[in-house]
Design a protein around this nucleic acid. Structure first.
Length: 345
DNA sequence: GTTGCCGGGCG
DNA sequence: CGCCCGGCAAC
């Protein structure tokens, strides 16, 4: 009850931002540098906030434009949706609840939920220049990249007038399940070829707001950091654990080192013949089992009453996915503390 | 510290 | 049988 930020006001912000965005995208000067309103920052804050809004309505498909595929024209990010979406977020088209409940509970109770799942996100910055799909991991890196490579500014090292901001965007990858939205993602096709359509009680509901709708802050140029974020605080409290239970067999492999680093980030090259290999075939296997070479003799009857060291299944199980507070969403086996039968590995 | 789950108890 | 938990090993 204590702290409540009238959501209406928030919607207003979003709507206005969206309108600004759409009007911009339709305006003729799409690709000329938009002449940032140099003076102050209050404007810029709402500005880039607007750039974020559309993604919240249709997350996955949206990113496809940003693929470095070919003629993706920079600075027309707005998908067909646009101004009609009155309330950009909270569009959970999913009649089922569960997520709804958790979301609502956040508002009803002051802040009871102790800890949501640590949502491990990694944020990268992607150059939007014509045929350049460069992705760096730091804002400074991408700005420098744009300044030197595209804007042709050399010399004076880090003088930034903020113009670079319009040529890159911020993307977020979820460490374990990258949207990998380009075109037809791999996980779609195999899902039917092989078995196990698990048919959860809760269907994917992969929409809702996930990738964006917050952050967008500290990355700015030094001049815009003076007025940090009243908006930011508001966003964080509801844009958090929207992580849908789906876990696409991801392909998030990048090295999380601090320095700049370019990743391919396309759809993974897997042809996917249909073997249900677990997505994590790269590691594991260092630990136990599968080592018997040159090790004959000495006990170890393959069928000993004692099972071998249980290697502890791989993927997340019901408990981790839904959390303790949603225990009644678990599969029965998990509830009885038996081997999970929904996320078999 | 947490999470998966075997073994075992209870109705 | 279904239901649940102590406790341990794997993270």
């Amino acid at each position: 009850p204590s702290y409540r930020k009238s959501s209406e006001e928030l919607d207003m912000d979003k709507v206005t931002a969206a309108m600004v965005l759409t009007s911009l995208s339709t305006s003729p000067l799409v690709r000329s540098p938009p002449v940032r309103p140099n003076g102050t920052e209050g404007l810029s804050g709402s500005w880039k906030e607007g750039g974020c809004v559309p993604s919240s309505t249709s997350s996955s498909g949206y990113w496809s434009w940003s693929a470095p595929s070919d003629q993706s024209n920079p600075s027309t990010p707005s998908p067909p949706l646009s101004a009609d979406s009155f309330k950009p977020f909270r569009t959970q088209a999913q009649p089922d609840d569960g997520i709804d409940e958790s979301e609502a509970s956040n508002l009803l109770f002051d802040e009871p939920i102790p800890r949501k799942r640590k949502n491990s996100m990694k944020v990268m910055f992607k150059c939007l220049w014509k045929n350049c799909g460069k992705v760096l991991s730091t804002a400074a890196g991408i700005q420098k990249h744009i300044r030197t490579v595209h804007l042709g500014r050399v010399g004076d090292s880090d003088y930034s007038d903020g113009e670079e901001d319009f040529y890159y965007t911020e993307i977020k990858l979820n460490t374990d399940s990258v949207v990998d939205g380009l075109g037809s993602p791999a996980p779609a096709s195999p899902s039917q070829s092989l078995a196990s359509p698990p048919a959860f009680p809760i269907p994917d509901s992969s929409r809702t707001e996930t990738p964006c709708a917050k952050t967008e802050t500290k990355l700015m140029t030094p001049l815009s950091r003076s007025a940090p974020t009243t908006l930011y605080l508001v966003h964080t409290d509801h844009a958090y654990q929207a992580t849908p239970p789906v876990t696409i067999p991801g392909s998030a492999k990048f090295t999380p080192n601090g320095s700049s680093f370019s990743i391919s980030w396309q759809s993974p090259p897997v042809t996917f013949t249909g073997i249900p290999v677990s997505p994590t075939h790269n590691h594991l296997m260092g630990t136990g089992e599968q080592r018997q070479h040159a090790h004959t003799v000495l006990s170890s009857p393959p069928r000993g009453t004692v099972s071998l060291r249980k290697p502890r299944g791989e993927g997340k199980k019901c408990r981790k996915v839904y959390g303790m507070e949603n225990r009644d969403m678990w599969c029965t086996a998990c509830r009885w503390k038996k081997a999970c039968q929904r996320f078999i590995d």
